[in-house]
């Protein structure tokens, strides 16, 4: 069995009386594509932000990339990439400027950044957009760029929060090819999604309902256990119990 890069135990986040994330425990293995599913408001984003060190857990413990999520959150940040649900690269910077900025923040040298930028733009077939302000890119391209920036510094784990939200099917396919490429290079992928066909692409998935993890296994095993034909049906069966959210 390969090494665990994420391990959490009873991780909890409360906002006042509201328990967004309720004692979740799970682990993610190195090189895995881990699907983090759940209805809107189930607590996926909050859980992910605790793992990334930008949200302080109310209770519980865990490690990411071998570092404690409570005490060593800044060290975790050296080893992860993050792509938030809302596009959050700088819209008033050009494509190459965004890449350069984040490369620089992660400590890459000017030379490395320049070389890797050329390589990346070629790979993405983005060369003609090098000097385009990011705000003028179509959404699908923005998402691809955001993902590329998130893994530009070769992190051990990349966290993707609904990376394909609002993107057309063809672009979604391309996006998942990029995810597989990253996984092949040894980057662990932690991804939330609403698309159940995408859940099938994951090695393992967890399904969150009302702040708790109700199921966690490989897609095939989950289908078997819930005697369902598809992940979509598994999800419906679980989500039906939800008391919050807007579905």
């Amino acid at each position: 069995m390969s090494k665990k890069v994420i391990e959490v135990f009873n991780l909890t986040k409360k906002f006042g009386n509201f328990t967004a994330v309720d004692r979740i425990s799970f682990d993610v293995k190195e090189g895995e594509i881990f699907g983090f599913l759940g209805a809107n408001g189930a607590g996926k984003t909050t859980a992910m932000q605790m793992l990334c060190g930008i949200s302080m857990p109310t209770a519980g413990e865990g490690t990411v990339a071998g570092y404690d999520i409570i005490k060593e959150n800044e060290r975790i940040k050296r080893n992860i990439g993050y792509m938030s649900q809302k596009f959050s690269l700088y819209e008033d910077l050009k494509v190459w400027e965004n890449i350069r900025l984040f490369g620089g923040i992660y400590g890459l040298s000017d030379k490395t950044i320049a070389e890797k930028t050329n390589e990346l733009l070629k790979q993405l077939d983005f060369e003609q957009e090098r000097n385009t302000l990011v705000k003028y890119l179509p959404l699908g391209w923005k998402q691809k760029l955001a993902f590329s920036v998130a893994i530009f510094h070769e992190p051990r784990i990349v966290f993707l929060d609904e990376p394909t939200g609002g993107v057309d099917p063809a672009m979604r396919r391309q996006f998942w090819e990029m995810i597989y490429d990253a996984a092949d290079r040894g980057i662990t992928v932690f991804v939330t999604t609403h698309y159940m066909d995408e859940a099938e692409y994951c090695n393992r998935v967890s399904i969150m309902v009302d702040g708790r993890i109700d199921a966690l296994d490989t897609p095939a095993e989950l289908r078997r256990r819930f005697s369902a034909d598809s992940m979509d049906e598994v999800f419906r069966q679980l989500a039906r119990k939800a008391k919050r959210g807007d579905q």
């Binding site: 930008i54 940040k77 938030s84 809302k86 596009f87 992660y106």
Partner: peptide
């Protein structure tokens, strides 16, 4: 407001 601060906060800056 733009959300860019999130992308900064997840870095070791």
């Amino acid at each position: 407001e733009n959300g860019t601060i999130n992308q900064i906060n997840v870095t070791p800056i």
